[in-house]
């Protein structure tokens, strides 16, 4: 025990400080910083591919909507005065719109997105959609209720399904967006009425979409609303579940399509590399990879997909304006919070 002992940490501190100074001061042009809310198991391989193909080092901050995205979006907002991030890759348009509303994004028109339908893009080019998920009803095939399946989301408030339906907490993740879309399509009064009927029907509010999936897979509850990727993975893992698209008949409202969205951050430290990453994400290749890994449906026409991945051509989509719906979401959050908290 001597003075060398106390020197050790001081030397360590010095090394770290010098190291960090060097790495932060010599901002290599060959890097790009991306924050993403896409599950790391799906997003990381794609970012690695980009790194390999472009030679640009990708520095990522991961977070997942499953765990309710405490990190990424809050961090982007908190960092507003001194942005560290170039590209924000979100699992849904809502968060991009929140950022745009707070003036944290900048427009970018990518050539790659030319043939993506315009309703999947921000009119002012702040965000662009690609590979989409859809909202589905996941149900347990081994339970007796499976003999009569609901066809419409409105069936979920019927007495046959009392205490048999789960939904994730609508204050978080894609469920919020689903609720906003309902408000957009139905108007506020009808939407609130429907939600109240769900509550009266004893709907179970789970902590996340993944939790809905888990509860249905374990047979704790018969069915629930979740995203295609959750349903797809549950099925792939051999759980006794299947899923269906609701409201597919003529005159019905259709099912919600949720595209991935990518946006360029205002004041991005590496804007050019950011744009290259955005181009890469919006490419047909990326859509093909996401179709394969997590059953996301390509928005480009004619991208090859595995057989069990549904095509957007075969689905009746809910007709909404994504930008307006996302704005609406911010407004209805108070209503949703009261709904969740009501007995």
């Amino acid at each position: 025990m001597n003075k060398k002992f106390i020197l050790l940490p001081l030397v360590a501190l010095l090394v770290i400080l010098i190291h960090s100074f060097i790495t932060s001061c010599t901002k290599t042009p060959k890097e790009v910083v991306v924050y993403t809310t896409i599950d790391q198991i799906f997003s990381e391989p794609i970012l690695r591919d980009f790194e390999r193909e472009s030679g640009i080092k990708v520095k990522a901050v991961y977070d997942t909507e499953e765990t309710k995205s405490t990190g990424v979006l809050n961090r982007l907002i908190a960092e507003a005065k001194n942005p560290q991030c170039d590209v924000f890759w979100s699992g849904d348009p809502i968060r991009a719109v929140v950022l745009k509303q707070r003036g944290l994004t900048q427009p970018y028109v990518s050539e790659e997105a030319k043939d993506i339908p315009k309703w999947y893009k921000d009119p002012e080019h702040h965000w662009t959609g690609f590979s989409a998920r859809a909202r589905v009803l996941i149900y347990n095939t081994s339970l007796p209720e499976a003999s009569t399946l609901p066809k419409s989301i409105f069936d979920l408030s019927k007495p046959e399904l009392k205490y048999n339906v789960a939904i994730a907490n609508p204050l978080f993740g894609t469920t919020t967006f689903h609720m906003a879309a309902l408000f957009y399509v139905l108007g506020e009064d009808r939407a609130i009425d429907f939600l109240n009927r769900l509550k009266e029907n004893g709907i179970l509010i789970a902590s996340s979409n993944g939790d809905v999936k888990k509860k249905v897979a374990q047979g704790e509850i018969f069915c629930g609303l979740t995203d295609t990727d959750d349903a797809f993975t549950a099925k792939k893992q051999g759980a006794p579940v299947d899923y269906l698209f609701l409201d597919q008949n003529k005159g019905q409202i259709g099912t919600l399509i949720i595209p991935n969205v990518v946006t360029l951050i205002k004041g991005a430290p590496h804007p050019e590399n950011g744009k290259r990453l955005i181009d890469y994400l919006l490419s047909r290749e990326t859509e093909a990879k996401l179709a394969k890994s997590c059953a996301q449906m390509p928005l480009h026409k004619g991208v090859p997909t595995p057989e069990d991945v549904p095509s957007l051509d075969d689905i009746r989509p809910m007709k909404i304006d994504y930008d307006k719906t996302a704005r609406l979401m911010v407004e209805i959050q108070g209503v949703l919070k009261r709904w969740v908290e009501s007995e």
Binding site: I16, S20, F21, T23, N82, Q84
Partner: peptide
């Protein structure tokens, strides 16, 4: 810590 002159701290493992 996220300010331009403190970036060496904020953007490193410090």
């Amino acid at each position: 810590f996220n300010r331009p002159f403190l970036t060496p701290i904020y953007s490193s493992l410090v």
